[in-house]
Nucleic acid binder design. Structure first.
Lengths: 244, 244
DNA sequence: TAGTGGTCTAGACCACAAG
DNA sequence: TTGTGGTCTAGACCACTAT
């Protein structure tokens, strides 16, 4: 093998040069056989640097979402394309992804009946304390986790929300089962931040990964709010498309 | 001083415990006198750990956007509130920020006339190679950089765009100076990612900081595209509000 | 010049996954 | 048991800022 040259004392940190080399090797497909980056010790030997220097490089690539390290197993290469998730007056999760993914997966993590807290009560236009159904879900496309959400519905009107969702796998269909055939997106707020521990695990992300969090309200055609949702999208796998 | 207790071998990494302590101290206002976190060596002594362990903790906080390290000077505490930037059919930068900031700053970094490349030509609905005016700008609120943008305008129709913008400090007013009194947002795409080197410097961010990048098209009331923009918002300082 | 953060090395040990 | 990534220490030197 040709020795990999890294320039010392040349104004560019070694770990940056090594990160660039590994990024290039990945895009060249050098590691396609295994889908893994070589072990840290191997890379350290290859580049003639300390293992910690390689770790700095890999940490940078993990932050970019290009690789994902798993203790005991190795450092895997991640896909880097994004599906486009449309947000419009009629936002529907499954329809929106359409032909971008072959298979859409929805999982109900849990559900509960909870009293409306201040912020959520305001969003839903109900008195604080009103009983709400809370659903926690994870959605994926072709097996890749795309988003996780916590959603709230007025319990009186949508009493069987959890059961219907678990069975039908769709909020739209669960609404229909309660006699609500149409609803519209009223408002959406978007922030981007680093994923928290729970999100890392639910969305299978590396520490330092980014999530886009949307807080949204949907209402029926009379303008009565029917859903408040807090959705976190894996920023490396999803882009949002606003349709105005 | 009371020795700060960090628990070793208790399943939580020292650097995480230290990050939590520093985060708490910041929110308690312990460092308000200087607006700076103590030097790394001082923190290492305070917690009884190696300086590198403190560096891991500070790196995590920098990624959160809570602090910003500057070589030779120290580690400064950052503000953490976000202004809300509305995106609607009639999106206007200055109006949108309204009363959230006292003073809006716009700076024209540079301008050029360039031929339309494939993607931009498609977005603007012009043949590739059509002359476009390119504007590079940075906008800030109360002195904090909020966003940086590169925008393109058909050169034939908006010949004096750069000069008008430089003088008026507003795209809306520069359009008006060309006889265009109204325009609407046609499409917006949003991705979130880590800031690149140029963005770090323009927006005064720490390495690892997040930007939300929007790609948008505005059109006149006849539907003719008048602007294609690529805007990067500092994610720690801005949230996007979609009005549907 | 002194003080600060940035980089790199060397070595040790731990936690987790796979055989 | 072996190999992997994760954490921590110790020490050195560099680059930049303030004085």
């Amino acid at each position: 093998m040709v020795a990999k040259v890294v320039e010392r004392q040349m104004g560019v940190a070694l770990w940056r040069q090594i990160a660039d080399r590994i990024r290039l090797a990945i895009s060249n497909g050098d590691y396609d056989a295994t889908g893994m980056v070589p072990p840290e010790t191997a890379l350290a030997a290859e580049f003639g640097v300390n293992r910690h220097t390689v770790r700095s490089a890999l940490a940078a690539l993990a932050e970019e979402g290009l690789v994902r390290a798993v203790q005991g197993r190795g450092t895997m290469i991640e896909r880097k394309d994004r599906v486009s998730y449309p947000i419009s007056r009629r936002t529907r999760f499954s329809q929106g992804l359409g032909r971008q993914v072959r298979e859409i997966g929805t999982e109900l993590l849990g559900h509960a009946q909870v009293p409306a807290s201040g912020e959520i009560a305001t969003a839903l236009g109900v008195p604080p304390g009103t009983p709400l159904i809370e659903l926690s879900t994870v959605s994926s496309g072709d097996g890749r986790p795309l988003s996780t959400a916590v959603s709230y519905y007025p319990a009186e009107r949508f009493a069987r929300m959890a059961e219907e969702y678990a069975q039908l796998g769709s909020v739209t269909k669960a609404f229909a089962a309660h006699g609500l055939d149409d609803y519209v997106r009223v408002s959406t707020e978007i922030v981007a931040r680093h994923a928290e521990a729970e999100e890392l695990s639910l969305l299978k992300l590396s520490p330092g990964a980014i999530v886009m969090e949307t807080q949204s309200v949907n209402a029926d055609l009379e303008g009565r709010p029917v859903e408040y949702s807090r959705t976190r999208f894996a920023a490396d796998r999803v882009k949002l498309r606003i349709e105005t």
